[in-house]
Amino acid sequence: MNYFQLFQVPAQFDLDLTELGTRYLELQRNFHPDNFAAASERDRLLAVQQAANINDAYHSLKQPLLRAEHLLALRGVKISHEQRSFTDTAFLMQQMELRELLADILHSTDPYALIDEAEQQIQQQKKLLLKQLASALDANQPEQDLLAADIIRKLKFFFKLQHELELIEQQLQD
């Protein structure tokens, strides 16, 4: 299913999220199962499936990584999650350093300073990669698409690091 088509928005990485949200609510107002409480059993089932599709589509377009993956899938490029190994040693070094930084936080005398430092580094890299991703996807050319797929893979590491950082912060607060 083409999620961009479903919401009648342009199939591009740079999306107006407010407009997407408005379209989403417009569709749910029509297809939410609550509209079909008095319908026949088959129709109720169809409505649940339809509303689930709409929710799934919204979920996928709302988040930049999933949106990029969907865009690539529509262009016939599949992100092979684990199979490809990274050859970019600079990236791998950077990941290792960040991991070490995260591991140190809980034993540090000033954990919040380390959290700020990690946060800053992660955000900076994410921003840079998202920018690269946007221009690679905008090019809409096969080799740029492959590059985009690589960037997505890298971004996933940063999103994961960010999530772990949040968990560490929660652990500290509790």
Partner: peptide, 13 residues
């Protein structure tokens, strides 16, 4: 079926 009509309960029989 009749998804649209039932979405507008005012149109029921």
């Amino acid at each position: 079926m009749a998804l649209l009509q039932i979405a507008e309960p005012g149109q029921s029989a």
